[in-house]
């Protein structure tokens, strides 16, 4: 099957010139669609076969200079969970789809309300009252139909979190309460899955990458019993720009982890103050790992 796909792709690939002036072999979206339909393979599998043969789907050409064909291939094979499809989650879904993550598991129990319009990129006036995960599905399909999407409209709890994220290569926290974040961190630790934490309030945001065994959010809040439900966002709100900025940092952390790149924001909580143009980190002790 894969050899057939590659033969078809070799025959249909054309020569293109990159901005650097280098030539490369590429395939257009139309070729991916046609080969997928003819071979009965998913568009994702067609793109994977192409990349394995050194043929670049044009949609990823501007990624290749930074992550290479091997990197793009790794992203195409990855399954990533985004928990929460609101401010952070909506932008994350947009970015990860464009980056070419292979499969996105999107979890959110909620529907859109009017006060989501200021910041939640998946929310339009027509979406008020509609499911967030269904909006995510429509957006992913419209951006990148070669991304497999698994949408779950459920409340994350201790009873279902393990089953939800099992099999993922990475989990991204786009939640809005601290106790559920702690639940997700515990599950990710049990299942040995890295977790990218993000949270916002006002013009402030924070990011931390937590590998299995890291104390992560426990260093901030303890085991969960004393953790507050909410933070200062109840006073300062969640203005438009903050989730976009923090989701971009989280998406970059996801790329770093999936590709094994240097320098994830680990053992420190990175704060971004958009109003004051300040980036600062608070060290998180990692000595007593679990």
């Amino acid at each position: 099957m894969k050899n057939d796909l590659i033969r078809k792709l070799e025959a249909l690939a054309e020569s293109y010139k990159a901005p650097s002036g280098d030539e490369y072999r590429g395939i257009s979206l139309k070729v991916v669609e046609a080969v997928s339909a003819e071979a009965g393979a998913s568009r994702r599998d067609v793109e994977i076969a192409a990349l394995e043969a050194g043929i670049i789907p044009l949609r990823y050409q501007r990624n290749i200079g930074s992550i290479g064909i091997e990197g793009q291939l790794k992203l195409r094979k990855a399954r990533v969970a985004v928990i929460g499809a609101g401010g952070l989650g909506g932008t994350l879904i947009e970015l990860l789809s464009r980056m070419g993550i292979g499969e996105l598991l999107v979890i959110d129990s909620d529907s859109f309300s009017e006060d989501n319009l200021n910041r939640q990129i998946l929310c339009t006036e027509q979406d008020i009252g509609r499911s967030k995960v269904e909006a995510a599905r429509r957006r992913i399909v419209s951006i990148n139909s070669a991304v497999d999407m698994d949408a779950r409209q459920v409340v994350v709890s201790g009873d279902n979190v393990d089953a939800l994220i099992k099999g993922c290569d990475l989990v991204i926290d786009a939640l809005d309460t601290i106790p559920v974040r702690l639940l997700v961190q515990e599950a990710a630790r049990r299942l040995r899955i890295p977790l990218i934490h993000g949270a916002i309030a006002g013009f402030l945001g924070e990011v931390m990458t937590i590998f299995p065994g890291d104390r992560g959010l426990e260093a901030l809040f303890g085991g969960g019993g004393n953790a507050p439900e909410k933070g200062i966002e109840v006073q300062v709100g969640t203005p438009t720009v903050t989730p976009m900025a923090i989701a971009a940092l989280q998406a970059m952390e996801a790329i770093k982890v999936l590709l094994g790149m240097m320098g994830p924001i680990r053992h420190r909580l990175l704060y971004l103050d958009l109003e004051q143009d300040v980036l600062s980190g608070v060290r998180i002790a990692n000595a007593d790992t679990k």
């Binding site: 401010g87 989650g89 939640l175 200062i232």
Partner: peptide
């Protein structure tokens, strides 16, 4: 000792 005081952020 290093003591850090930071605000709690929880929105997503």
């Amino acid at each position: 000792d290093h003591v850090a005081i930071v605000p709690v952020l929880a929105a997503g």
